[in-house]
Every structure is written in structure tokens, then in C-alpha cells.
């Protein structure tokens, strides 16, 4: 296989695959945060902050995939 083509294929795959897990994960985080906010509306502020923290940690994984995309894309070009 042509190394350039392999790099481009890997670039696309890396981000696509990296987005799956965090996508599900962020869904779970936000869903549970909403439940928590509904159950205890007086804690909503704190839950929201924690939710953003959770999203940030989860999202980082997808963003590493994006980074990998840039690296592989650079290899291809």
C-alpha cells in the first residue's frame, strides 16, 4: 500500500474511531447530570460545573484522535 494513502486512511479512521467512545461517554455524562439536576435542583450549579469537568475529560480523548489526524495528515502531505 502506498504510504501516503495509508497515512490518509489512518488519518480519517483515527478521528472517526476516536470519536465513538467519547460520543457515548459524553451522552452518559450529560444524561446523568440532567437526572441529578432534576432530582436536586438546588444543587444544579454544582452539578453543572462537575458535568463540564466530566465532558472536558471525556472530550479530551476525541481530541487526541483529532490530533492524531493532524499528525497523520502531515505525514501524508
Amino acid at each position: 500500500m502506498d504510504p501516503q494513502a495509508a497515512a490518509l486512511l489512518g488519518a480519517g479512521l483515527s478521528y472517526g474511531l476516536a470519536a465513538i467512545g467519547p460520543g457515548i461517554g459524553i451522552g452518559i455524562v450529560v444524561g446523568n447530570a440532567v437526572q441529578a439536576m432534576v432530582r436536586q435542583p438546588e444543587m444544579a450549579g454544582q452539578v453543572r460545573t462537575t458535568m463540564f469537568l466530566g465532558i472536558a475529560f471525556t472530550e479530551a480523548l476525541a481530541l487526541f484522535g483529532l490530533l492524531l489526524f493532524f499528525i497523520l495528515f502531515g505525514q501524508a502531505g
Partner: peptide, 13 residues
């Protein structure tokens, strides 16, 4: 690394 990448990758995307 994640701190830097999170910000950078979000904005570049």
C-alpha cells in the same frame, strides 16, 4: 498535554 490539546483542538476544529 490534555489541557493544551483540549483548548487547541477545540479551536482548530
Amino acid at each position: 498535554i490534555s489541557l493544551a490539546v483540549r483548548l487547541f483542538a477545540n479551536m482548530i476544529a
